[in-house]
Design a protein around this nucleic acid. Structure first.
Lengths: 275, 275
DNA sequence: CGTCTCTCTTGAACACGTTCAACAACGGGT
DNA sequence: ACCCGTTGTTGAACGTGTTCAAGAGAGACG
């Protein structure tokens, strides 16, 4: 577990600099008029909107990292709710207000944890994806790798999962703010599909990565609720459900089932759309 | 939608007086040593453990109802997070500490809301269950009824859903504390199955109510995240998925699919067990 | 050197959920 | 009457996440 965590630690640079719109109104009732925090989670990168890469504003980046580092360490040591913002600030040697200059809220500190585990999952899945060619083996390996990566954090993952569950929260896996992480996660499952030797119906193939990611979210949900020692029930769920998915995917090419498949895909499409 | 809400409003009396065990340890990590609050959410009914029905301790029950009533009203009017405990106390004309005498926390006030909507779902499902005999029609009607009942509360349901998501929370649908409500909900789906004209594999029939409830939880999850106007995507989901379930259930009696069904049921069983 | 404009930093202050020691009200038991 | 235990009630106080007006630091320009 230490190896994976370390591997993730030095890949601190962010994927893309997607500029999130300033109007982040999520149709909530509260009056949200905050000025988007200079070094905010999703919007750091190019300051003054110019794509300048010169380290002019790099001074604060150090503080930012320091706060994040300290926070994640304390979360791991004491748990999420037990770690106060004052403790983080004190431990990092800054004022409490300073943390709020870089992070909109305590929850936003979790986004860092989020990103890291995402990267760690990618790393842990790599060997499986190069070794295995069978679809079921690939899927199974990737799912287990995901659990491996998250296992050390199960106890406090359950705590902060609470935050992720709120739809309006930026931590929600479906939110716009975590869309880069989501895309990265889906990319893993795209690899699972495309690198596999399985013959898959082309229409299904297109949608499959996203569906597998959704299934993975389901597994994570189960895992969060899983109180069995070592979360072995989750392991059992994976081992049991992968062959079923494999069989279903294999069946997708049968002529007789074509209409049924079409119907299901159409349903998914009509639900995703919002017209 | 107003009709349903009204129907739910005056059925303020609770279903049964199921005595929950006083030791409400949910195997959490935190040190939970609170003395279980005299008039606690699940343990009202017979005081002093004797099944005495005389209204000896009925004095406080009035205050309890007053606080709950006021709280739910304010939640509806202002939203959950916007409603402070101080506001509830003030509006109810009691001290803030008094609310904590009857309810362990602000979240526990939601349990009352929970119970009510559960009962309202039952009521709203009744006409469908007496009218329809076809399995798909019954299921569809019950699901839509559930959404009908919850619709007026969608905006703040999303907020408090956050609480329910935390596994250790008593509000979690899987927690021991909400097991009466869960059983009541499953009972509805048992009605759906048993009153239907559909021929169902007996082994599946036994597990089906719980599975349908689980599916219902999934629908609710989707509904919470559904931002489409009137949550019509959820409606579409229901209309689309019910025929699929119906077809699958019908297929369950086919001889060829027997082994597959067995396998799935065995998987579910092995996951539920924790050995 | 002075001044202006950014980025960055501070810590007191606020509102909130929750706790707790104290007290009031009631209902027997003697 | 008196006491006593239980039930019910109070409001100040604590610790928390978060905000904000104020200022420090560093460069740019004159």
């Amino acid at each position: 577990m230490a190896g994976v965590t370390t591997a993730a630690a030095d890949s601190a640079d962010e994927p893309g600099t997607d500029v999130a719109p300033a109007t982040a109104d999520v149709a909530s009732a509260a009056a949200d008029e905050r000025p988007a925090t200079r070094g905010g989670t999703g919007s750091r990168g190019g300051p003054t909107e110019g794509g300048d890469e010169r380290p002019r504003r790099a001074r604060g980046e150090q503080t930012r990292q320091l706060i994040l580092e300290t926070a994640l360490r304390l979360f791991r040591e004491r748990g999420y709710t037990e770690t106060t913002m004052r403790a983080i600030a004190k431990e990092a040697g800054v004022a409490v207000g300073n943390a709020y200059y870089y992070f909109d809220s305590k929850e936003h500190l979790i986004q860092g944890f989020y990103d890291r585990n995402q990267a760690a999952h990618r790393v842990a899945a790599e060997p499986v994806l190069t070794r295995e060619k069978d679809f079921a083996a690939r899927l199974r390996g990737v799912l287990h790798a995901g659990i491996d990566v998250n296992e050390p954090y199960h106890s406090f993952a359950a705590t902060f999962f609470k935050s992720a569950a709120e739809p309006s929260s930026p931590l929600s896996p479906f939110s716009r703010e975590s869309s880069p992480a989501r895309e990265a996660a889906i990319a893993i499952f795209r690899d699972v599909v495309e690198g596999s030797s399985a013959k898959i119906d082309p229409e299904l193939r297109k949608e499959l990565p996203e569906l597998l990611w959704l299934g993975w979210m389901g597994v994570v949900l189960f895992w969060v609720y899983d109180r069995s020692p070592g979360q072995r029930r989750t392991r059992r769920l994976i081992d049991g459900i992968v062959p079923l998915i494999d069989r279903l995917v294999g069946l997708s090419r049968l002529r007789v089932l074509r209409p049924a498949l079409r119907q299901i895909l159409a349903l998914i499409d009509s639900i995703q759309r919002d017209d």
